[in-house]
Simulated assay, not measured.
Amino acid sequence: MKLLVIWNGGSGRSSQIERLRLELAEHPTAWLELDRDVDLSAEITDFIDSGGETVVAAGGDGTVHAVVNHLMQIDSKSRPSMGIVPLGTANDFSGTLRIPNEIDLAAKTLFSRESVPVDVIRIRGDGIERYYSNVAAGGNCVRVSEELTDDVKARWGAFCYLRGAVGVLADMQTYRLFADVDGETFEQLDSWAVLIANGRTNAGHIEVAPHASPVDGLFDVVIIRDGDLIDMVEIVSGNLLGNFLECEQVIFRKAKRIRLRSEPPMRFTLDGELIEKEPIEFEVIPSAIRMFVGSDFKR
């Protein structure tokens, strides 16, 4: 099997790339480091034309996100399979796929079993069409992401997301939301945040969608209504205890499509990518990319 490994020198564990090179030394492998000068679409197309079979994202969720978006530009009939070797700070989506963090074990997933068709979510809006595989987080979640400097990430690792939330929790912004979730309408709903999840965890293995599955043809919608300090404490403690979906302030649905708008406009981060314009529609693309998963991943 011919591999193209796309790796990110800025990922949290990129120093382990040499270990991965050793693990793949016996396999025909091309290596491509991500930077602004790389035409990723052209490189992947050339790889396919030369008989390549599997594209590997060696990095964190941002690297996975970049690879997914470029693979989705390729016709589904010729789209290669995808593998992930988690070299990032959080590695949330690889965790959902049960891919081990250890480099040697993650590399073995590329050869140990058949790939699995995995769902991808497409977003559309005014001048927007993007894809993501894990979680879109909107509202105050974006403000948390903006608190994360490189220094905070380096000091706190996966816990940097909790560190970034400290300042935001004291000054939550309210969004007046309209949403159509597979025909069910919510109007004039005051909310703090919206999460549309294909994977189970976000922001450093915080379980935001415990029932999510990237192979069920659905995504999980989590709308967090606004409230007071007591409501906030209940939501945060419920999240830590694994039962926050049962909080009165949380609306949870499984769906194939959601259309939404809000006042003020709600920005989203898609696996780390900030979308400045307000997305209008999210839609699941079932079985979009075949991916290699861990041995204990359950379909």
Rank of each mutant, 00 (worst) to 15 (best):
F47G: 02
L245K: 06
R155M: 09
R122S: 13
E276V: 06
T174G: 11
I230L: 12
N243H: 10
D228H: 10
V118W: 15
A137K: 08
P265L: 04
L245E: 04
V250W: 08
F297H: 08
D37K: 01
E246V: 07
S115A: 15
L34T: 00
Q249E: 13
S15D: 14
D228K: 06
F159P: 12
N239M: 13
S50R: 11
A25G: 07
A255D: 14
E53W: 09
V55W: 01
P286M: 03
V118G: 11
R176C: 05
T63L: 00
S11F: 02
G242D: 12
E281C: 04
M1S: 11
A137D: 09
T149E: 07
G12D: 05
M72T: 00
G125M: 05
F219I: 05
G88S: 08
E114S: 15
V181A: 12
G217T: 06
K2W: 09
D171R: 15
E26D: 14
E207Q: 11
D216G: 01
V116I: 10
F178H: 14
E129Y: 05
A179M: 07
G238Y: 02
I84Q: 05
V116Y: 14
S287V: 00
A203S: 12
V215T: 14
L22P: 13
D92L: 02
L189Y: 12
G88K: 02
L20Q: 03
R113M: 11
H27S: 13
D37N: 05
H65R: 07
S11D: 00
S41Q: 14
R163G: 08
L34H: 01
S50L: 10
D220A: 12
D46I: 14
V56D: 01
T109F: 02
E234I: 10
